[in-house]
Nucleic acid binder design. Sequence first.
DNA 1: GCCGGTTTTTACTCTCGATGAAATTCTGTC
DNA 2: GACAGAATTTCATCGAGAGTAAAAACCGGC
Lengths: 209, 209
Amino acid sequence: MPASPAPSSEGTGRGTKSARTRRRVVDAAAHVLVRRGYAGTRLSDVAAVAQVQAPAIYYYFSSRDELIEEAVAVGLARARTLVEEALAEADGSPLDRLRVAVAAHLSTLLTHSDHAAAAIRTVPQLPESMRARHRQAERDYVEIWRGLVAEARAAGEIDRDLDPGVALMVVLGALNWTAEWWDPGRGSLEGIIATAQRLVVDGLAADHE
Amino acid sequence: MPASPAPSSEGTGRGTKSARTRRRVVDAAAHVLVRRGYAGTRLSDVAAVAQVQAPAIYYYFSSRDELIEEAVAVGLARARTLVEEALAEADGSPLDRLRVAVAAHLSTLLTHSDHAAAAIRTVPQLPESMRARHRQAERDYVEIWRGLVAEARAAGEIDRDLDPGVALMVVLGALNWTAEWWDPGRGSLEGIIATAQRLVVDGLAADHE
DNA sequence: GCCGGTTTTTACTCTCGATGAAATTCTGTC
DNA sequence: GACAGAATTTCATCGAGAGTAAAAACCGGC
């Protein structure tokens, strides 16, 4: 992979130089992970993106897997935090809160660097041990959503005929998959969010007659 | 990857022994592709699943990439064929036809071996040259869906406020992502299909008051 | 039970990429 | 302006996995 200028926020942030390099490496790992998958993520590529020599990575991480695991974990944590923060400020009906979560999830996924995307799209390829450690975090995140759906359902705002568990996964799928095709050329982020919100809410909403 | 009994239809089918071995290899490739991604697909693993020695693969394919490309192409072609067949028999409103397509797409993705899933989930990781060749086929497939949405829209059955292109991708995402989490333990295939149909159609449907 | 073609195997090469180790350059401190 | 530690590099090792080559096993006629 040809060395490219290095994506997003890198190097710019606060902290010691060392801390910034470290962040650059993790960001680069996420960047490569999203495009090449777990097995395809070569340290040499990560290094090129982060603008260091490959062995330098070992100053910060003791193995390739450790780096990858951190990149993935950071992504999920970030998504979760942003969604929780957004929800904390949201009042309104349960369906409104769902709308807020949809927006937060999408904007994290599509703009906040490649971390969230790496976390979400790479997981299935991770070796089992790593995946197991990740699973709990994943479950926790889905739990937030499950809660939202449950509230909405309790409030009678959700179609009774839908299996809430399945419906939730279908909805999350719709959101997650956007990372697969969206780029700013395909329409504005706001446009996607609006479309997704409408689709999700109308899809879930209790019968409309 | 420990040699496992070999998935689905393999070896069973019609044709000369040679043809059956070949099919087994392609099926095995799809099987591994789905779980490990493009870079993670080792011929030794494919061979183990197909129950041959790794070099035997070279009797049928001249390179690893050629094998992978075929596995992916077969998957997409299969999905397309099944959806087209299902649509050919479907009458009813445009939204009904969409429902039919949703069912066909999902059942291909979730049951007809790993091919379709490999085709859909692996593509983004493929090296550019291979991907380019695949892109056209992919576009053709999406075109079918675009047509369905357009018809429904023309018939006034779809919410005018939705951007049809974006909405379609969101819908396809919801369907494609199911391959990421579904297994028979999570509910019946029919259950998923029903939920997805409802969600998709209600999500797209023209305003309901 | 022998033969030419087909299919599969065993034994071997070659390259790439993770990682290790030592050498080198920075950086701030006195 | 020399020193201790931090950060990073260059050089070297090593195993894994793609691909090759030649030998072996299999298979349907005869």
